Computed example of a mutant assay.
Amino acid sequence: MDNQQKQTAALTAIKSLLGTPEGEDNVELFIEHHLEELDADYFSKTYGTPKPEASQMLNSLVLVSSWSYEDDGIINVFDFSLPENVTDCVLSVRFSGDDVEEVSMES
């Protein structure tokens, strides 16, 4: 799996956690945190509404970094966040081989 395929798989993994018990401490926390912390003007400008749906926010995630957590040089961590660099928080997806190992919220 190349890096573009992993990036696509990472976004799919993030979206699949929405509304699940496994997504409470990462995806849903990320959404709730930003709905509480960011100004309604940002949401209105970015999403056309002061309180966007979680799916709208997840569909707008942008890749902010990708890196290797081992010394092998293989990119296996992909960090996503909201557009326009409005937060230091990311949803970080870590791979083990070609499989998603973990999705976490990091800051």
Rank of each mutant, 00 (worst) to 15 (best):
T20H: 07
D41Y: 04
D79T: 11
E36D: 10
D71R: 10
E24N: 12
E24F: 09
E70S: 11
Y42L: 01
E37P: 00
S96D: 15
V62E: 15
S66L: 08
V93T: 14
S44K: 14
N85K: 03
E24I: 05
V93S: 06
S16P: 07
E32D: 12
M1L: 02
T12C: 08
I75M: 15
F78E: 06
V77L: 03
K51L: 11
L61Y: 07
V62H: 11
I75Q: 11
G73M: 01
E36Q: 02
E28I: 14
N85F: 09
S65F: 00
H34M: 09
Y69M: 10
R94K: 08
G23V: 00
S104L: 01
T46R: 12
L17Q: 12
T87C: 12
I31K: 03
E24D: 02
S107G: 06
N3H: 06
C89V: 07
V86S: 02
V27G: 04
P52F: 13
V90D: 00
L18A: 14
E22C: 04
W67G: 13
V77E: 10
N26Y: 05
G23C: 06
G48A: 12
D88T: 04
N26A: 09
I75H: 09
E32R: 01
I75K: 13
G73H: 05
P83Y: 10
E101Y: 08
T12F: 09
H34A: 04
D41K: 03
V64R: 10
D98V: 13
L17H: 12
Y42H: 12
G23E: 00
S66P: 02
L58P: 13
Q4H: 02
R94F: 05
M1C: 09
K6P: 02
E37N: 12
E28Q: 11
G97R: 05
W67K: 09
K15A: 08
L82K: 04
E28F: 02
S68G: 03
P50L: 11
K15R: 14
T49I: 15
S44I: 00
G73R: 03
V100D: 12
T49F: 01
E84D: 13
